[in-house]
Design a protein around this nucleic acid. Structure first.
Lengths: 191, 191
DNA sequence: CCCTGATTCTAGCATCGCTAGCGATTCTGT
DNA sequence: ACAGAATCGCTAGCGATGCTAGAATCAGGG
């Protein structure tokens, strides 16, 4: 039995290694640089081992995305709990969210831009996804008017943040005025 | 001289053909199906002619994106002028925008999701881009509070629509409640 | 009629994601 | 302890991608 468990432990460790290497490589040089050959070289194994762990490159990206959601959830939680009032919490969360997208673009893309076959809005969604959404929910809930569904409001607010993050990062919105737009958004939701 | 002009005319015609074929193929089967070989076959020329017109596949996508902006601008204009009041115009424009993204996903991706080296927020941006933004501006301007920069507010509202469109289409937001989220957004901006 | 210049095509390169099939290594049963 | 069996990772290769170099073809001018 212990041999079996050691095998599984080593295997799990290697899987972790793959995901970590993929994330670091993506964050350093972008997802285009994350080829299966390059990734295999990075973990010092041959290409086909990747496919014994994941169905394909997309599945690896999905695993990275789940990790990223955990990171984002942690950052959001820290920002929210550090903020004072209701409106301040919302502003802090919004600021942290867009900052995350700008600081870690490759990670953000894997999470929310790249088309990936992760269950999202269902119960089968991985826990870190729910955690991240939950953090947004905790910040948005207090500003919901009576009769509003907080979940729906959170989804809407999230979408707004996502739009600001992606359009700004792709150069479709001038970067300089980002803070102003963020303030405008928070004002319209919490005002 | 007339020979020269005929040559140029034919060349321009072929360029138009390339962009149209690319757009139709993308809308029919998605951008993954738009390979240079497939596209060349579609226009009944060989592959390298594409590169005598465009720098590469990305440039072709950019050309398609500009066409798409013209289409979007036209749809937005129709929706806005058909609507009655200020709030109704905003709602109609929002509805039309997200509907466009859902009805023509490949086109929308080329315009606003795919990373493309088009000048966007500068004066060198192609006219259709400004037209589309201008339509949004005309709908948003009336609901701007005094002291608000209408341009900035439009950018923000646009980002919200973009976020809703992309997250819904990628399955990250449940599709059923889309209208509710749209109403929530319009309510928070025009309320 | 041949030459010159532009234009288009054939053929190929490097790289991509992914897979089949072999060799070696490790476990199992007697 | 040792032979058979099963698992594991590797080498090699497939089809397809974006893109390019050089041959071939066609037009116009002396």
């Amino acid at each position: 039995m212990t041999i079996q468990t050691r095998r599984e432990r080593e295997r799990a460790e290697r899987e972790r290694l793959i995901v970590t290497a993929a994330r670091e490589l993506a964050e350093a040089e972008g997802w285009d640089a994350v080829t299966t050959r390059r990734l295999a070289a990075e973990i010092e194994y041959s290409q086909p081992v990747l496919y014994s762990h994941f169905k394909g490159k997309d599945a690896i990206m999905a695993a990275v995305a789940v990790q990223g959601c955990a990171d984002l959830a942690a950052e959001l939680r820290a920002a929210r709990t550090a903020a004072g009032g209701i409106r301040e919490s919302l502003a802090a969360v919004a600021q942290t969210y867009t900052s995350f997208a700008q600081r870690r673009p490759a990670l953000y893309d894997a999470m929310f831009t790249h088309l990936v076959d992760l269950p999202f809005a269902t119960e089968e969604a991985p826990a870190p996804l729910w955690d991240a959404f939950g953090e947004l929910l905790l910040a948005v809930e207090p500003i919901a008017a009576e009769g509003d569904d907080p979940g729906l409001l959170t989804e809407t607010f999230w979408a707004c943040l996502h739009g600001l993050a992606t359009l700004t990062r792709s150069g479709r919105l001038p970067e300089g005025a980002h803070e102003s737009r963020l303030a405008l958004l928070v004002g319209h939701f919490a005002g």
